[in-house]
Computed example of a mutant assay.
Amino acid sequence: MSFDEFYYLTPRSFFNAVNGQRKKEDVYSKERWIMTREIMFSAMKPYLPEGTEKTDILVFQWEQKQLQKDKEIKALTLVEDIEKMNAFWERQDAVKKS
């Protein structure tokens, strides 16, 4: 931003520009951290047990909420599946008894 551009900005447009630049730098930083994790995971992969995922090695702060939601959804799906299986087998038992 040039000196003249700075003086033509209103306070609101200046803060918008600053916030946009911060978001851009944040995204760039996250991309670099993700690339670092990829390299680290690739180097460690031959020595890790089967089924190990990248998030098992290193979880970033911005990923924790999403991982928690995924675990909750997985748990709810598992409970629903168990309920469906129980209902199915109860129907099968009722058919056998009659």
Rank of each mutant, 00 (worst) to 15 (best):
S42M: 06
K30I: 09
L67D: 06
S98T: 06
K65I: 03
V18S: 06
V79N: 02
D56M: 01
Q21F: 15
G51E: 12
N86S: 04
E80V: 04
L78I: 04
V79P: 02
E83W: 10
K97R: 13
R91Q: 09
L48Y: 01
I34E: 05
M85S: 07
V95N: 03
N16R: 03
W33P: 02
T36V: 09
A94V: 00
S98C: 04
I34T: 07
K54T: 03
P11F: 01
Q21A: 10
K84G: 02
K54I: 00
T36I: 11
Q21N: 14
E53S: 07
P46T: 07
P49R: 10
Y8I: 11
N19Q: 02
K54P: 01
Y8H: 11
N19D: 07
M85Y: 09
D56K: 10
N16S: 15
I82A: 12
V95F: 01
A75R: 01
S98N: 14
K23L: 13
F14W: 07
Q64V: 06
A75W: 02
I34V: 12
K84M: 00
Y28L: 09
L67G: 03
E83M: 12
G20E: 14
I39E: 13
Y7V: 06
E63N: 01
Q68H: 05
K23V: 03
L9A: 09
L48A: 12
T10R: 11
K71H: 10
P46F: 06
L9G: 04
E80F: 06
Y28T: 15
K96G: 00
E90G: 08
I57W: 04
I82E: 15
R32G: 04
L78E: 11
L48D: 02
R32E: 11
E38F: 01
T77Q: 15
W33Q: 06
Y8T: 15
Q64E: 15
I57P: 14
T77L: 01
E38H: 13
I73N: 09
Q61C: 05
R37F: 13
L78W: 13
F3Q: 12
N16D: 15
S29I: 02
E5M: 08
E50L: 05
Y8R: 15
I82P: 00
P11C: 02
T36H: 11
K96E: 10
K54L: 08
S42C: 07
V27A: 14
R32I: 09
W62H: 14
D4F: 08
T55W: 05
N19L: 10
S42V: 04
K74Q: 08
